[in-house]
Design a protein around this nucleic acid. Structure first.
Lengths: 213, 213
DNA sequence: TGTACATCAGTGAACGCGCGTTCACTGATGTAC
DNA sequence: TGTACATCAGTGAACGCGCGTTCACTGATGTAC
């Protein structure tokens, strides 16, 4: 607040925002190697701080991982919202609602492919997938991936594409489908495929959801 | 071969079949805590043998885990085949083919619920999902889960339910859907649900696949 | 059938590793007077 | 505006842990003669 610190912040004694720095380091590690790669000591190393300094901000390693994981879920939401932006409303409400659900799917798969480490960290930390709707896991616009699926389905109901009686629980069907494809893409038999091939598989899957829902 | 060993085999010097014993111990650990819980030293402990004895049978810990993981994939195949058995052909070829695909789904989800640790070990060890069709990962009847999906889809084509031009790659759609639901059930928001609720969710998802494929 | 011997599946002890975590501490900071 | 002081975010050293893995070895087994 008062003085200008050394430009090369390595020598900083009172760290500017250590908590944030640790989370960022954790996200970086997650990006490189998934949740298992989020190592408390390494996070303090990257923040240029002694190992135990982390305990001023997190009760233990799991607490850090949880925050990192929440952050990753937020990134997933951001990626989906970016897909929304790439397909602005055309005025045809029905087509727009359909496109919205597709955007959830393509954004989700896009995130899995572009950031497999963050994807894994977002979705395979215990209790994170389970509470994927919690506000703490929201993206920059305040929404979680789970809420975005719901939003798209609501739009489908509002435009009459989806019968209201099928709405309850439909997010689980949509989500399971897209989540499964994401897993197959990052860890499964679809891993080695080229981008166009994965795009094609995604399109086919979303067609199936569209028809089947 | 020659002498009768102590009944309490703890003192055995030449172990009967250590390799098999280690794999079984590994599967047991996987059952309790997933792939991360498969610990080489603990496997030797359970087999009543010194830690390094394992290196007579596996080059390293990863080699053990890989075999354990393959075994788990085989169990998944067995579980699906059990579901086939529970729904024997009725004579209506079209209905039978449909039921076969459903059985893949319900068997898959059943395995995830009954054996979450084995499920995780089967499907989230690197390279295992990717090579899920390899013969080394077959169940008791010599088939892998991946092949079973294909079999069901072939039957759908043969009976005219599924247009042949949609057959190529269809296993990825079917598999992704069911795999995603499995993940949501063991780790996700569907975890706490009662059996009937999960059955209902499974049925709805399979209806969607049936309609959408 | 008996004996000598090579094999190799096991032993027992030890290693280095990086981890998470705890301890007693220190000294820059902001605040009260 | 200057000084005394309490705070508490950081330091530095150390711990115990269980892991995977390596070493030199031993002695039960099956086989050749």
């Amino acid at each position: 607040m008062s003085d200008e610190r050394a430009v090369n912040a390595r020598t900083t004694y009172r760290h500017g925002d250590l908590r944030e720095a640790l989370v960022e380091a954790g996200v970086e590690m997650a990006r490189e190697g998934g949740p298992r790669a989020v190592v408390l000591r390494e996070a303090t190393r990257r923040a240029g701080v002694s190992p135990n300094a982390a305990y001023r901000h997190f009760t233990d390693r799991d607490a850090l991982l949880q925050v990192v994981s929440d952050t990753c879920l937020g990134f997933a939401a951001d990626r989906i919202e970016a897909e929304f932006d790439a397909h602005p409303p055309t005025g045809d409400a029905e087509a727009d609602a359909r496109m919205m659900l597709r955007s959830v799917g393509t954004g989700y798969i896009g995130f899995a492919r572009e950031e497999p480490g963050l994807f894994r960290t977002a979705f395979s930390v215990p209790d994170n997938l389970q509470r994927a709707g919690d506000a703490s896991k929201a993206g920059r616009r305040g929404r979680t991936p789970f809420q975005l699926v719901g939003l798209a389905l609501d739009a489908l109901v509002a435009t009459g594409v989806l019968p209201p009686e099928r709405r309850p629980g439909a997010e689980f069907q949509a989500w399971a489908t897209v989540h499964g494809l994401g897993m197959l893409v990052i860890d499964g038999p679809l891993r080695g495929l080229t981008d166009p091939m994965i795009d094609a598989a995604t399109e086919r899957l979303l067609d199936m959801v569209d028809r089947g829902l």
